[in-house]
Structure formats: structure tokens, C-alpha cells
């Protein structure tokens, strides 16, 4: 049975009439042309589909659309402020923490969610938090550096 669902995707109100059981990931990608969140496993085990829902880290591949009704969804496309990248995006660039890049949107959004909850994470806390995100290029060392760098920059911004 189709339902009318309203999402605020990257600040824009989007309404879809569709089966509310469809994964949020599918609706973003197939109906709303928001391709940043990726399919990696469909089981919430790899983090490639990570989005922020009302600011919280959410695995969109196991989130039924119905659960996202009237929620604010932030995807990788919505992070930058115009041409100015979010500090986490910039840190990934600065550290060269990209190989194939398919996991990158999920990695960045997970890191954004972490730094929102804990702006000064230890390495152990970063590792613990990010452990749900898989990178098969195994670029973890540089991704860890990027999250560290973003944390230190966000700290600086907060201080100034």
C-alpha cells in the first residue's frame, strides 16, 4: 500500500508517494536522484549507506521509508556550504583519505555524526565509532588521520 511520505532532504522538502516499506536508501537513490548514499550490503553491516537523520547517524539501507517521514535527512550532497566544504570533507581531501571513494560518503557522514556527539574523540573512540564502516581498499590509516584532522580543526573553530 502506497503512502505519502515527506522528507527534508538536505534542507529541501521532498514528498513521495510510494511503498513505505522501501528502504530509505532506495527512495533517495531511485526516486529523489540523491546518489551520495551507496548500497554496500543491504544489511546495515558496512556503513556505505550512512546518512544523518535529524542529525543522527542512520543506516539508510535498513531504515524503512516510513520511519523517515517528516525527518531531516542529510546526505553527503548536503554537507558543504556552497563551495566551502565541511571540515570533515576538507580533511579527507587534505589527508588523501580516498582510494576508490565508494565508502567515502558513509565514512564522512559517520565522522560528522561522531564529532557532533564528541568533538574531542580519542583514537580509541574514533576507531570504536567508525568500526561499522568498511573500506575494502583498506584505507583506514588515512581515514583515521582525516577524522583526527577534522576534530582538531573543529576544535580550533570552536575556540576562535
Amino acid at each position: 500500500m502506497d503512502a505519502t511520505i515527506t522528507l527534508i532532504v538536505n534542507g529541501q522538502k521532498r514528498t513521495v508517494v510510494t511503498d513505505p516499506e522501501r528502504p530509505l536508501l532506495d527512495v533517495l537513490r531511485e526516486d529523489l536522484d540523491v546518489m551520495g548514499p551507496k548500497y554496500g550490503c543491504g544489511e546495515g553491516l558496512c556503513g556505505a549507506c550512512t546518512v544523518l537523520m535529524d542529525g543522527k547517524r542512520t543506516l539508510s539501507c535498513i531504515t524503512p521509508l516510513g520511519d523517515a517521514d517528516k525527518k531531516k535527512i542529510t546526505t553527503i550532497e548536503g554537507l558543504a556550504d556552497g563551495d566551502r566544504l565541511h571540515p570533515v570533507q576538507q580533511a579527507f581531501l587534505d589527508e588523501g583519505a580516498i582510494q576508490c571513494g565508494y565508502c567515502t560518503p558513509g565514512m564522512i557522514l559517520s565522522a560528522v555524526a561522531l564529532l557532533k556527539e564528541n568533538p574531542r574523540p580519542t583514537d580509541e573512540q574514533i576507531t570504536e565509532w567508525m568500526n561499522g564502516n568498511i573500506c575494502r581498499c583498506n584505507g583506514y590509516a588515512k581515514i583515521l588521520n582525516a577524522v583526527r584532522r577534522a576534530a582538531s580543526q573543529i576544535k580550533e573553530v570552536t575556540r576562535s
Partner: peptide, 23 residues
Amino acid sequence: TSVARPNSRDVVTGSHKYPSDIV
């Protein structure tokens, strides 16, 4: 020299289209 991947900005902004993103 350490030249970065030329389209890495597209990767971090989500605008790069992977094969599974083509519509």
C-alpha cells in the same frame, strides 16, 4: 610528486557518479 586523484573533490561531495549511480 604526490598529485591527488584529480576528481577527489567530486568523491567527497558525492557528485562523482559510480557505475551503480548511472541513471
